[in-house]
């Protein structure tokens, strides 16, 4: 899969998810996921959509938030289970 195909597949995946859940797509986060994120998530990966969603949530609640290129389960505000699925978000003073 080349870069253009990857970008198109990720975009379709996020767009489809939003159409189901009535939300508006976060184009800045999608752009980060597709072109700037050094984690370079594969569109077929189990965590592709959760990575987008976690980044969108954190960037909208904490505008200065800088996304890390590590797995999203390593992000300070995120709690995952043994299957690396996000089960908690904690933001507080």
């Amino acid at each position: 899969m080349d870069a253009a195909q990857r970008a198109a597949t990720l975009t379709d995946m996020v767009t489809d998810a939003h159409s189901v859940d009535e939300g508006s797509l976060d184009s800045n986060v999608l752009r980060w996921l597709v072109s700037a994120d050094e984690y370079y998530v594969c569109p077929q990966a189990d965590n592709a959509l959760q990575r987008y969603a976690a980044a969108a949530v954190l960037s909208k609640l904490v505008p200065e938030y800088e996304m890390s290129s590590g797995h999203e389960c390593s992000w300070l505000e995120i709690l995952c289970d043994a299957k690396s699925q996000i089960i908690g978000i904690k933001l507080s003073k």
């Binding site: 998810a17 939003h18 859940d21 009535e22 939300g23 508006s24 976060d26 959509l49 959760q50 987008y52 969603a53 976690a54 969108a56 949530v57 909208k60 609640l61 709690l79 289970d81 699925q85 996000i86 089960i87 908690g88 978000i89 904690k90």
Partner: peptide, 13 residues
């Protein structure tokens, strides 16, 4: 954000 609901395994917000 609505994106919270894309995290289908969330137990704790």
């Amino acid at each position: 954000p609505e994106e919270l609901s894309l995290l289908k395994h969330l137990e704790d917000i």
